[in-house]
Simulated scan of single mutants.
Amino acid sequence: MLRTLPFLLLSLVFAAPAAAQKASLGVFGLWGAFAEKNRCYAISEPQRTARNNPRGAFASIGWWPGRGVNGQVHFRLSHVKRPGSAVLLRIDERTFQLAGGGANAWAPDALADADILASMRAGVEMTVETRSERGQLVRDSYALRGAATAADAAAIGCARRR
């Protein structure tokens, strides 16, 4: 028994961080859904970026039950945007203006989040555009195949955690 005690303690040490990490809720097309302690989200990387995604660009839809946030859209841009430059989101033929700062962009309010999410559900492709600090066009494009299912999985994942 004494010989197995160090092994058991070591197992507990490595198991604790794993329990605190994100849990996969599934991969749906080009989107994944994940749950963490206080939030759930659907996420995807761009299929095309201005230049090879140097900043780890992504699009996400998040739920934070403890904060009352449901279906919040967030984009990490592939390049830091130029101050004062607009950030436009195009989903097929619809265009939305996003709020943004640095390398991040988001819907201006919860109503816009819901409208964007509804368009994502029906859409095929979306593109986020702005100008970089150097004035170059930044265009990150995402395929929407699987976005609706991943968003549903994230929403259900957080509903089960309440």
Score class of each variant (00 low, 15 high):
His74Met: 14
Phe96Lys: 15
Trp64Cys: 10
Pro65Asp: 12
Arg67Ala: 10
Trp64Gln: 00
Ala105Ser: 05
Asp113Gln: 13
Ala15Asn: 09
Arg67Met: 12
Ala148Phe: 07
Ala143Ser: 05
Thr130His: 09
Gly135Gln: 14
Val138Ser: 05
Arg39Trp: 01
Asn104Ala: 06
Val128Phe: 01
Pro83Asp: 06
Cys158Tyr: 12
Arg94Met: 12
Ala147Asn: 14
Asn53Gln: 06
Thr127His: 02
Ser78Met: 07
Ser85Trp: 03
Asp113His: 12
Ala57Trp: 03
Val80Gly: 10
Tyr142Asp: 07
Ala23Phe: 06
Glu45Leu: 05
Ala18Pro: 02
Gly26Ser: 03
Lys81Arg: 07
Ala18Gly: 11
Gly32Ile: 00
Gly146Pro: 13
Ser60Arg: 15
Ala16Gln: 02
Asp115Met: 15
Leu77Glu: 02
Gly68Met: 14
Gly84Asn: 10
Arg160Asn: 07
Leu111Glu: 15
Leu5Met: 00
Glu133Arg: 13
Phe7Val: 03
Asp152Met: 13
Asp140Phe: 06
Asn38Gly: 03
Leu77Gln: 00
His79Val: 04
Gly68Trp: 10
Ala16Ser: 05
Phe14Tyr: 00
Ala18Ile: 10
Gly62Asp: 10
Ser141Pro: 00
Leu9Ser: 10
Leu111His: 14
Arg161Cys: 03
Ala57Gly: 04
Ala33Glu: 14
Ala114Glu: 15
Val138Tyr: 01
Leu8Trp: 08
Trp31Met: 06
Pro65Asn: 05
Gln72Tyr: 08
Thr127Phe: 08
Gln21Thr: 03
Arg55Val: 04
Ala20Gly: 11
Thr149Asn: 14
Val124Asp: 14
Met1Tyr: 11
Pro46Met: 07
Asn70Glu: 15
Leu12Ser: 05
Ala143His: 04
Ser44Met: 02
Ala23Trp: 11
Phe75Asn: 01
Gly56Gln: 05
His74Gln: 10
Thr149Val: 06
Asp109Asn: 15
Gln97Leu: 10
Ala57Gln: 08
Phe34Asp: 04
Pro6Gly: 04
Gly157Trp: 07
Val27Phe: 07
